[in-house]
């Protein structure tokens, strides 16, 4: 932290930064919880997209965010949690399943668009007319 910033901050704030480890961002400090928290935030963003968006493709993007959050956790546990390659292979299978899921979901969405001329999930109540 540069000198001119630390001169501006009061001592109490510096003490808090020290106690909470807010600036412990070296390689020896960044561990499992940091990556898990990034995954948690990504998961929350995906849940938000799935709940609030009306467009079916936006719901699909939220689903992708959730799958990626799970993947980050798998790879983080394979690095730090002793899963050691098993977590990475689980991540590979998640990627494969995501590819298959997106292909089928987009095919269904295209079919719905040909039927309804829109893909608003609030108004679609049946797959055929």
């Amino acid at each position: 932290m540069p000198e001119f910033i630390t001169n501006l901050l009061p001592d109490v704030v510096l003490q808090y930064i020290q106690d909470w480890g807010l600036l412990d961002i070296g390689a020896q400090h960044i561990g499992l919880p940091h990556f898990l928290i990034v995954g948690a935030i990504l998961f929350a963003l995906g849940v938000f997209a799935i709940i609030t968006r009306k467009n079916a493709i936006m719901v699909l993007m939220g689903l992708e965010l959730i799958l990626n959050a799970a993947n980050i956790n798998f790879v983080a546990f394979s690095r730090f949690g002793g899963m050691n390659y098993d977590g990475q292979i689980a991540a590979i299978f998640v990627i494969v399943l995501a590819a298959a899921e997106v292909a089928v979901a987009l095919a269904i969405i295209l079919n719905i668009y040909q039927t309804y001329k829109h893909i608003n999930v609030d108004e679609i109540v049946e797959l055929k007319k």
Binding site: M1, L23, G26
Partner: peptide, 9 residues
């Protein structure tokens, strides 16, 4: 603080 920041972080 200065010693705890590195490239990885």
């Amino acid at each position: 603080l200065q010693s705890n920041v590195d490239f990885y972080g």
